[in-house]
């Protein structure tokens, strides 16, 4: 078991707009404070799938390969509220690397939080971790 280096990701309103367009998810709770408030949210929230994708970037950064993820799953535990300011919200992603299984897949358990609260639960990925040769830069 190995603790992987903490990674952080900033999410601003502009990122939500960009993700909405790229993913085709135009739910107004991700861009309209009025609609977010009308359904009882404290403000515009990030797409759960954006939070998942950013945490996935931590995984591919740790592995050193962006094509190594075989399986990846999360539970959306709490919404990520993104204020309308340049600071936005900051996600903190920690990971623990487990030993590879018989099939050569390595499990990475993720802890993803925002403002000290866990926003993803049961977040884990199965990856094909490249064999370390010891001389990689």
């Amino acid at each position: 078991m190995e603790h992987l280096p903490t990674r952080t990701f900033r999410v601003t309103r502009a990122d939500l707009v960009r993700y909405a367009g790229a993913a085709g998810d135009f739910n107004p709770i991700h861009w309209s404070d009025r609609v977010a408030a009308s359904v009882g949210l404290p403000g515009v929230i990030a797409h759960g799938m954006l939070t998942m994708a950013l945490a996935g970037r931590a995984v591919t950064a740790w592995v050193g390969r962006a094509d190594a993820v075989a399986e990846y799953g999360v539970r959306f535990a709490r919404p990520v509220v993104v204020p309308d300011d340049p600071e936005g919200a900051v996600l903190t992603v920690d990971g623990v690397r487990r030993p590879a299984d018989a099939a050569g897949l390595t499990r990475v358990d993720l802890t993803v939080s925002c403002a000290g609260e866990k926003v993803l639960a049961q977040a884990r990925a199965l990856v094909r971790w490249p064999v370390e040769t010891g001389d990689q830069g």
């Binding site: 759960g48 799938m49 998942m52 993820v69 075989a70 399986e71 990846y72 799953g73 999360v74 539970r75 959306f76 049961q122």
Partner: peptide, 10 residues
């Protein structure tokens, strides 16, 4: 509706 879980198996 809220999105509860998501998982991808590739």
């Amino acid at each position: 509706v809220v999105h509860g879980d998501q998982r991808f198996v590739h």
